[in-house]
């Protein structure tokens, strides 16, 4: 199957000369449609910078990002903006939603941007939101929702326009454990079902149990890639084990 996203030798260097900092160092990976990948690592490891480059929000110093067969660097700024709107779905850590649009309008925004808002589109938005447990909150404004609900609206927005790639930056940052599990579980389910290529940046290793692959970064480089289910679950359970250990003491 053709890859939805290919990152080849991505390098990002800030500054020049002796003060230059390499934030991302020769990172390469490819993601298939229907595959959900977690990008993990400590702060400063370069995972968010890598996400920004994969999203076409930041240009790499070297390397190439290809999404759905299209080279992001070959596009003009204007075309790249339009491409983000049509082929990439986003969920951010904060300031995800437009405060003056209600839940349904926030999701429909992506269809509106692509001039694809019709009756069928509206219907899909409602169905998707209902699926995410927000069927009763279609007319609510973001300010009236809990953090978990807002994050679910963002997930609906990231998927509604049927993008090739879905990117999520710390989707569980402001959620408690049970809500975090719920949000990421649904997210993974939809990515698999709708055959999107998903990347989630997270510092919460417990969330790895929902992904198919874990790319671990350290000092700008890929330090480890886990593809075996067992290995991933072991990583995800690391904290659980520690937590249980704490409780036992």
């Amino acid at each position: 199957m053709r890859e939805a996203l290919i990152a080849e030798g991505i390098t990002k260097i800030y500054g020049e000369g002796a003060g230059a900092v390499t934030a991302v160092d020769r990172v390469s990976f490819a993601i298939q449609p229907g595959e959900f990948v977690a990008l993990v690592g400590p702060s400063g490891s370069g995972k968010t910078t890598m996400l920004a480059i994969a999203a076409g929000l930041l240009s790499p110093s070297f390397g190439k990002i290809t999404i759905a067969g299209q080279d992001l660097q070959a596009m003009s700024e204007r075309k790249r903006t339009r491409f983000r709107g049509s082929s990439i779905g986003f969920s951010f850590q904060a300031n995800n939603l437009v405060p003056y649009l209600n839940v349904q309008e926030n999701v429909e925004l992506m269809l509106r941007l692509n001039h694809k808002l019709d009756r069928k589109g509206r219907q899909r938005a409602i169905e998707l939101l209902t699926r995410l447990g927000l069927g009763e909150r279609l007319r609510s404004y973001p300010g009236q929702l809990s953090g978990g609900q807002q994050q679910r609206v963002a997930i609906a927005r990231a998927l509604i326009h049927e993008p090739s790639v879905v990117l999520a930056d710390e989707p569980t940052a402001s959620l408690d454990t049970s809500r975090a599990n719920q949000v990421v579980a649904t997210f993974a389910e939809l990515i698999h079902e709708q055959k999107r290529a998903g990347i989630m940046v997270t510092h919460d290793l417990r969330m790895c149990k929902y992904v198919d692959r874990v790319v671990q970064m350290m000092d700008g480089k890929v330090s480890q890639i886990l593809t075996e289910r067992q290995a991933i679950d072991a990583l995800a359970n690391l904290y659980v084990t520690i937590d249980e250990g704490r409780q036992a003491v």
Binding site: R78, R82, F83, R84, G85, F90, V98, M110, N114
Partner: peptide
């Protein structure tokens, strides 16, 4: 955020 998701 709007620009990131594709607003010109």
């Amino acid at each position: 955020m709007l620009k990131a998701v594709g607003a010109s």
